[in-house]
């Protein structure tokens, strides 16, 4: 059965709340599963499902802790992800040179393995102190969920 899987990679918890808000927004449509990227088995990535990835940036443009196992598993196993579709929303802070770089690591590895990014690359800049939630929910409304 096809479902929408929302995967979040977080350091301070903001991406998790964004995932929950998007999950609430999509509720009522297809079935929605929300998971921390560190709890998700990359072997489950399937063309049957649609993935929404919410990922923050940590330190000097690095992946947040909870996204690292996901990235490492993909890099190590190099599965063929042809047919897998995903949308991505990056969190960051343009006070730092490495604004929003964390999500780009995930985007790159998924693309390299054959997955296809759909919709607009969503981003939120926390430099003004705002939470990403409203922007992310608006972004999620524009996604072609049933591609």
């Amino acid at each position: 059965m096809s479902k929408t899987v929302i995967l979040y990679g977080t350091e301070s918890g903001n991406a998790e709340l964004v995932a929950e808000d998007i999950g609430e927004e999509l509720n009522g449509g297809s079935s929605v599963v929300i998971s921390d990227m560190s709890d998700f088995d990359v072997a489950e990535l399937s063309p049957e499902d649609f993935y929404i990835i919410i990922c923050s940036t940590h330190g000097d443009g690095e992946l947040p802790t909870s996204a690292r196992p996901f990235h490492e598993s993909l890099s190590a196993a190099s599965p063929d992800l042809s047919g897998v579709k995903y949308a991505i929303f990056g969190l960051g802070d343009s006070s730092y040179e490495t604004y929003s770089k964390g999500s780009e690591h995930i985007d790159r590895v998924l693309t390299e393995l054959g997955a296809e990014r759909v919709g607009e690359y969503g981003r939120h800049d926390a430099a003004d102190g705002s939470l990403p939630n409203d922007a992310a929910v608006t972004w999620s409304q524009s996604l072609p969920l049933f591609v």
């Binding site: 301070s12 918890g13 903001n14 709340l17 802070d93 006070s95 926390a126 430099a127 003004d128 102190g129 705002s130 939470l131």
Partner: peptide, 15 residues
């Protein structure tokens, strides 16, 4: 005070 992005975690706690 200029690290508004870090301070934004307070908006998370507001909830």
């Amino acid at each position: 005070p200029d690290h508004l992005g870090t301070k934004a975690v307070a908006r998370q706690f507001d909830r």
